[in-house]
Amino acid sequence: MKAGELFASSADLDSPVHRLPAAMKLWIAVAMVVLVALAPKAWWFVPWGAALFLALVSGLSRVPARVLVGRLLIVEPFVLGVAILSLFQENGVSIFLALLAKSTVCIYTMVLLSCTTPFTAWIDALRQARVPSIFVTTVALMYRYLYVLLDEALRMRRARAARSFAPNRRFDWRLLASVAGQLFLRSTARAERIYSAMLSRGWR
């Protein structure tokens, strides 16, 4: 997988759903997730209603189903991992199934949101929601430099692969740590240069 696919590229498509203001989508999604996640079990119709609504919005969004389901499936095993713990109690099976349905709907909501909202719109939405500026800046820089960092990591791996002739089956803790350490050193140096670049353009 290319590092470029980390953030949903389908977020840059154009559709009625994509054109909605990000802040509005964010609040709708959060409200829906809260409702679905916290609804009592007797309200079985809530997750189903939400699922129907999501199916409708997915259709309008023109995001390929393959992309949406793919992203859902990436996270799903981790839901199962926690949900399995709920089996070991009274009525375990029904609690397990209810949990699974709820969290799948919730995850799909967030997946759909991120597949229809470009990252810059996220940042504006955070600003509008009066998130402290230090977080907004941190998120913006994180998004910007995650790719740069992953590219560096991939180049380091390629360089090493080019010099090793037999694939190493044994897990190498030191190698992992040195990759991570290198990445951090580069990150620090990068942060220093970014600071210079900010200063040179009048930042106070």
């Binding site: 910007r144 740069v148 990068r190 240069r193 970014i194 670049a197 040179s200 009048g202 106070r204």
Partner: peptide, 30 residues
């Protein structure tokens, strides 16, 4: 700093904003 404009060696150091517009607007805003 206003009179001297500095172009850095690695563009990734200098383009620290999420979009080109925001990045170009950074200096004027400051």
């Amino acid at each position: 700093r206003r009179q001297v404009g500095l172009l850095f060696q690695d563009p990734d150091d200098q383009l620290f904003c999420p979009t080109v517009y925001e990045d170009v607007a950074f200096g004027p805003k400051q």
